[in-house]
């Protein structure tokens, strides 16, 4: 199949993470999300939570920069994850990665297919209510809070805006078909992409 990297950006409650999980299972490749920090924490012998609490977050509070070094722990954790994604990509490994500005970090990589999953507000609210046993008001507040945080984080560390269709290969509304069917549709598209790439490579070899 050659190297294949799927990056999945997502709105909170859209089922983007679930779609990423289904894709990684179907493609039989690892899924990287917040677990990428677990590996670093295990290596350093520290609590993974001390890293998790600062991830996917824009720098906060008073920050100072000196010769490219930042005092912000959010900046450090973001760079840690970007380097992890870059190293994995450079190693030739195929994988699915959720969020972490991965489509921006790997922009220009021929193995990358970048996806952004959005959803209708009503569908997302219902999904959050079901998953987290919240009432509608709480679910909407949670959704708003997380999306605000993700947007701020993404837009701070990326050149393209969060959810802007120009920054992704595929943008999809998961409410249209439902999470499972959306994942299946995306899987089919990815297979077609792999086939097309293979055909182009064969053509180039013959030429």
């Amino acid at each position: 199949m050659g190297q294949l990297i799927i990056s999945v950006g997502r709105e909170y409650g859209s089922g983007g993470h679930e779609i990423a999980t289904i894709l990684s299972e179907k493609l039989n490749v690892p899924l990287y999300d917040r677990n990428m920090l677990d590996q670093m924490a295990a290596r350093n012998g520290i609590e993974a939570e001390s890293l998790h609490q600062h991830e996917e977050m824009k720098r906060r509070g008073l920050v100072r920069t000196v010769r490219g070094h930042s005092s912000s722990v959010q900046d450090s954790v973001a760079q840690l994850q970007f380097n992890f994604i870059r190293e994995k990509a450079e190693s030739g490994e195929s994988f699915v990665v959720v969020g972490r500005c991965s489509e921006n970090v790997l922009r220009g990589n021929p193995a990358l297919v970048s996806i952004f999953v959005r959803g209708d507000e009503e569908a997302k609210t219902q999904r959050i209510c079901r998953l987290y046993k919240l009432n509608r008001l709480e679910a909407k507040a949670k959704m708003f809070r997380h999306d605000k945080k993700r947007k701020a984080y993404h837009n701070y560390y990326s050149t393209m805006k969060w959810g802007d269709s120009r920054g992704y290969d595929i943008c999809i509304n998961s409410s249209l078909l439902g999470v499972k069917a959306t994942a299946d549709a995306l899987y089919e598209m990815i297979l077609q992409f792999v086939e097309k790439r293979k055909a182009e490579e064969s053509k180039e070899e013959l030429a």
């Binding site: 670093m40 600062h54 100072r64 070094h69 900046d75």
Partner: peptide, 25 residues
């Protein structure tokens, strides 16, 4: 006194953070 008070603080915190040792305020 604070992470932003001197250049050495910023560089030390950043070096540690990039290696997976976060130092918060």
């Amino acid at each position: 006194m604070t992470p932003i008070g001197a250049s050495a603080n910023v560089v030390g915190i950043s070096t540690a953070g990039k290696e997976g040792y976060p130092i918060s305020w």
